[in-house]
Design a protein around this nucleic acid. Structure first.
Length: 325
DNA sequence: AAAGTCTGCAACCGCTTTCTT
DNA sequence: CAAGAAAGCGGTTGCAGACTT
């Protein structure tokens, strides 16, 4: 036969724990260990059920619990593990010493998830939300300079991006107007008629990690993790961090060819050269002009944008994520 | 300053898995 | 082996404090 009922919930207290209750529970466990949660409340003189005691202990009173704000490294770890494990909070917590599954779950739901959504990343799949985009809104909001388009390259159809890049480099207002007014017709026409100029060698299948700032890249890809193409990332082969967080994306006239012989992102390649992708002034202040965009990736208290900042784009005003989900 | 709204988090609920008898 | 309790786990709720109007 089985056991007798764990506890009679009638008359047992619920809700927030008082300091007195906490002390009773801590003192009991320090003396006797948790032992059997079923009998613990009675022995400790608590009007709680064992389950409540266990939760209070494991989620709050345990001496090895690390309290306070999550560090940047912890946040990165959570994101990376969640992309692999999903909502396996206990599994994630097992890899974050001092953090409980409940705490991680709360932090995910209140901070990380919202930030991913705000940046157009599906928090379930960890991939950009392609369904949020349409070319007109992109082009309208991005003012159509090349730098902005490069930010967006992983979010739109590669052919569309090639076309937009072409239009941007030609500075042809008529083309722009046509594209904005009737995107599909104009794109088809242009793709049929054009020989793409030198910018056509941009590999539009590359993930945006190659095209935005290096800091974000290093933050996202910690050693032995995989990128979104399931390729192993070895961070030791990545270039060192820049001395500041300001990165200038390529201007129209910059060369930004990247080795992409297999159309795949392969940072472990000997040919991979981050400097060929991002031009960064190392010693002088960065002038802003019409063809370059200064990306300040982390202000002192910027809510610690993580790799999701690599996918920045405009969400239409009034858009409701919850409605959309 | 007051009322309303939002946010973060501790605690609970209910289902599943593991363990005990 | 079966029954049922304990433990584990993820989702949800309620409330206090912060913030906005």
């Amino acid at each position: 036969m089985g056991r007798s009922p764990c506890c009679d919930k009638n008359g047992l207290k619920k809700g927030p724990w008082t300091q007195e209750e906490d002390i009773k529970l801590m003192e009991y466990i320090q003396l006797h260990g948790p032992g059997n949660w079923r009998t613990l409340p009675k022995n400790a003189g608590l009007q709680r059920c064992g389950k409540s005691c266990r939760l209070r202990w494991t989620n709050y009173l345990r001496p090895d619990i690390k309290r306070g704000r999550f560090s940047f490294e912890e946040e990165e770890t959570i994101i990376q593990l969640h992309s692999v494990l999903g909502n396996k909070w206990s599994a994630i917590a097992a890899r974050l010493p001092g953090r409980t599954d409940n705490e991680i779950k709360n932090y995910w739901n209140t901070h990380i998830r919202k930030r991913l959504l705000r940046n157009g990343i599906d928090p379930v799949t960890h991939t950009p939300r392609l369904d949020l985009l349409d070319i007109s809104s992109i082009l309208n909001s991005a003012q159509l300079n090349l730098s902005n388009l490069l930010n967006l390259q992983t979010l739109v159809n590669p052919e569309v991006l090639k076309l937009a890049t072409l239009l941007a480099s030609s500075s042809n207002q008529e083309n722009l107007d046509m594209l904005l007014n009737n995107p599909m017709n104009h794109m088809n026409q242009t793709l049929n008629n054009q020989q793409l100029p030198n910018c056509s060698s941009i590999d539009t299948t590359l993930p945006s990690t190659q095209l935005l700032n290096q800091e974000c890249h290093n933050q996202y890809f910690s050693p032995n993790m995989v990128n979104m193409n399931n390729q192993i990332i070895d961070q030791s082969l990545m270039p060192p961090c820049l001395p500041n967080n300001n990165v200038v994306l390529p201007s129209e006239s910059d060369q930004f060819m990247v080795p992409a012989s297999e159309n795949n992102y392969n940072p472990t390649s000997q040919n991979f050269n981050f400097d060929s992708v991002i031009s960064t002034p190392m010693s002088s202040p960065t002038p802003l002009n019409s063809s370059s965009t200064l990306v300040n990736s982390s202000s002192p208290d910027d809510d610690r944008e993580t790799y999701c900042s690599m996918f920045k784009f405009e969400i239409p005003e009034g858009f409701e994520f919850d409605d959309f989900m």
